[in-house]
Computed example of a mutant assay.
Amino acid sequence: MFDVPDATCEVQIDECQSQPCLKGGSCHDYVNSFSCTCMSSIQGDHCEIEIDESQDQPCQNGALCPEGVNEYSCDCSQTTFTGRHCETPLPTCTPQPCVNSATCLEDEGNYTCDCWPGFKGRQCEVDVSECSSSPCLYGGWCIELSWHSLFGSEPLLPDHYDPQHAAGFICSYQPGTTGNVP
């Protein structure tokens, strides 16, 4: 029910009675006026405008901010940063850049890979070729200890590959061949 002014103008009309503030806004009544107090993600005289918080670009370092109303989240998955705003650099060993079971060592914003014997390269990606010089004499077949696909099937190799012992080679000879390789 609306308040009706009387002839002496003593009755205050409640402008908030019609609920002019939208989207959960609070109405404050004044003489011949009102104001709305809006929720934090809403603005406008009547709280009619929703703010897309991702438009402020809170995500840093090239991270994506998927569009959302009343909230945002940063997608850091394509960056080398983490945190709510993708502001914290990931350790340089994340994700693991070293291969062949090498150990990654942080080094003042960079990294080095501690390679097992038999491997080399920035990321230990190069298998040192011990057989390239044809060390097996008399028609022997050179088998590098880093050829992990042969472990378990080649009788001269152990059942399981171990990168700690991948340096070196063994020679496989035809039956009937005897003697030691110098």
Rank of each mutant, 00 (worst) to 15 (best):
D3I: 13
Q174N: 11
I13S: 10
N100E: 11
D75H: 06
H160N: 15
D45G: 06
V181T: 03
V126I: 14
D6T: 14
L156N: 11
W147K: 12
E108M: 07
P5C: 11
C76G: 03
L105C: 03
H160M: 06
Y72L: 01
C16W: 07
Q174H: 12
T8G: 08
T37H: 09
L22F: 11
Q60G: 00
V181I: 07
G168P: 12
H165Y: 14
A7L: 13
H160W: 04
D52Y: 14
F34V: 04
T112F: 10
D127A: 08
P182W: 09
L137G: 03
Q19C: 02
D52K: 13
S33L: 01
Y161G: 12
T79P: 09
V69P: 09
D3K: 15
K120H: 10
H160P: 01
C9T: 09
D45V: 02
G118C: 07
G62H: 07
G118N: 09
S172I: 00
Q96E: 14
P97A: 05
C59L: 04
C86E: 02
C9H: 13
C27W: 09
G139L: 03
T79K: 06
C86P: 09
T82H: 10
Q55M: 05
L90T: 05
E154R: 10
L22Y: 05
P5D: 14
M1K: 14
M1F: 13
G121L: 04
S133L: 10
E15M: 02
T82Y: 10
L137M: 09
L90A: 02
V31M: 08
P95R: 01
A63S: 10
C65T: 08
Q43L: 07
C124E: 11
C27A: 03
K23A: 06
T94S: 15
